[in-house]
Design a protein around this nucleic acid. Structure first.
Length: 431
DNA sequence: TTAAATGATTACAC
DNA sequence: GTGTAATCATTTAA
């Protein structure tokens, strides 16, 4: 049974405004004549037919027809009947209580866009996000060019996002207004409550929300791609300069028994390395990079000690040469300034070598070794000694490597295990 | 072009 | 929080 027939059937049994509408349109007192009843039914049928086919007509025709129907003397009665039918069938409350909880995925997308600086208040075109990402990756300011590119791209994404969002909101509002006007207009001829209009608006908004979610999703994807391209530290990895690597290696091999620099030592090394790093203007090596370097070095050294042996010897030789020069200078200085001090009795107290930097400590300790004319109380008699060859092939014997008092005292179990492992390296004792 | 080297990240243990 | 081990991604040298 089609809609029109159903309504007509319903109309057949509904009383209206105190009148019998037993199929009657003009609603005169019933005569009980079948022919008259048939005529009334025909009238009602015509009106309904006009209503149902109004959408098939042109706008002007429809407007004219609508006006005619609104002015029809039977219109109030028909409207009441439709209200009554609606009341009975419960159409007005169908789905009225639909209230969706907030979509968790939409919330996630919103949060992410906010965190990235795409949505929400302008935060310098995402510079905050860029800075945060740079800080998180341990990167330094040497990526300012990349970050400005990142900011520019992020600003572009932000602009596109807001433009599209504006379009979406405009379209949504326009469509909602249109539908509301339409429903209000229709409410003159068919029973539509404000609540129903509200419900319809809700449906429209939900439909548009799904489009909005697609926009947010694609924006998030774009930001993720941008981040990985510009801010992923692994992508923009640069090797340290030779000088920086040398400084780090010198420290590592001169503290081989316990290559765990303190926070202060790391800062010192970072500071020293930053002078020599040549990867971009104003580049620095951060403390975390120093930590990374030592972490990698320890692991790789441990994994393949044999391979690093040559390197270890080379740095030990360097340290020895430096130390020898330092001691020679010290001795000469001592002789010049203190003529009363006999060479054979050349004594130096540890306190005289309270030096700050790790390198200075190394020099001190190597001085202890090379200062053969003096009697030094070597604090690390158990440490490893490497035999080594100088660059010109001369043999250096007994350059002490890794003699760091502080590190020995403060060594943890893990450190000691490293020392144990390290002592397994075949070495020559000092003569 | 490819393998080795290297800086950074991640998961896990302590 | 720090260090280790495994791994990734990029750079460098052969």
């Amino acid at each position: 049974m089609d809609e029109q027939a159903r309504i007509m059937q319903a109309l057949g049994g509904v009383s209206l405004a105190g009148h019998s509408i037993q199929g009657g349109m003009a609603l005169p007192p019933p005569h009980g004549h079948d022919g008259i009843d048939d005529g009334r039914k025909q009238d009602i049928g015509d009106i309904l037919h006009q209503i149902m086919t109004i959408t098939d007509q042109s706008l002007d025709e429809a407007q004219a027809k609508k006006h005619g129907l609104n002015c029809h003397r039977m219109k109030p009665a028909l409207f009441s009947v439709l209200c009554e039918i609606k009341e009975k069938t419960g159409l007005s409350i169908r789905g009225a209580q639909e209230e969706d909880p907030p979509d968790p995925q939409l919330m996630r997308l919103d949060n992410m866009l906010l965190a990235e600086g795409v949505s929400g208040p302008e935060k310098g075109g995402g510079s905050a996000a860029a800075a945060a990402a740079a800080a998180a990756s341990g990167g330094a300011s040497d990526n300012s060019i990349e970050h400005s590119d990142y900011r520019a791209k992020l600003t572009q994404i932000r602009q596109i996002y807001h433009t599209e969002l504006e379009k979406y909101e405009q379209a949504c509002n326009e469509f909602t207004t249109h539908v509301m006007n339409l429903l209000r207009e229709q409410s003159r001829t068919r029973p539509i409550s404000p609540k129903e209009i509200e419900r319809m608006v809700g449906i429209i908004h939900r439909k548009f929300s799904s489009i909005q979610m697609q926009l947010k999703q694609s924006t998030c994807e774009a930001v993720m791609i941008l981040r990985s391209r510009f801010l992923d530290a692994r992508r923009k990895r640069r090797n340290f300069s030779k000088q920086a690597t040398e400084i780090l290696n010198e420290y590592f091999y001169s503290h081989l028994s316990n290559p765990y620099p303190s926070e202060e030592a790391k800062e010192e090394l970072a500071k020293k390395c930053s002078i020599t790093v040549s990867q971009g203007v104003g580049s620095t090596i951060t403390v975390s990079q120093v930590s990374n370097w030592f972490g990698n070095k320890r692991i790789r050294y441990k994994k393949n000690i044999g391979k690093f042996q040559e390197e270890a010897n080379l740095y030990a030789a360097k340290t020895a040469v430096t130390a020898a020069h330092a001691v020679a200078a010290a001795v000469q200085n001592s002789q010049t300034n203190s003529p009363t001090t006999p060479n054979s009795g050349f004594q130096m107290k540890d306190e005289e070598f309270q030096l700050d930097s790790a390198e200075s400590k190394n020099t001190l300790l190597t001085n202890m070794f090379t200062g053969s004319s003096g009697s030094f109380n070597l604090p690390n008699s158990g440490d490893m000694f490497l035999s080594m060859q100088s660059l010109n092939g001369d043999s250096y014997q007994g350059a002490q490597v890794g003699a760091n008092v502080q590190s020995q005292v403060g060594a943890t179990n893990r450190d000691r295990s490293y020392v144990q492992m390290h002592r397994a390296i075949p070495v020559l004792p000092v003569c």
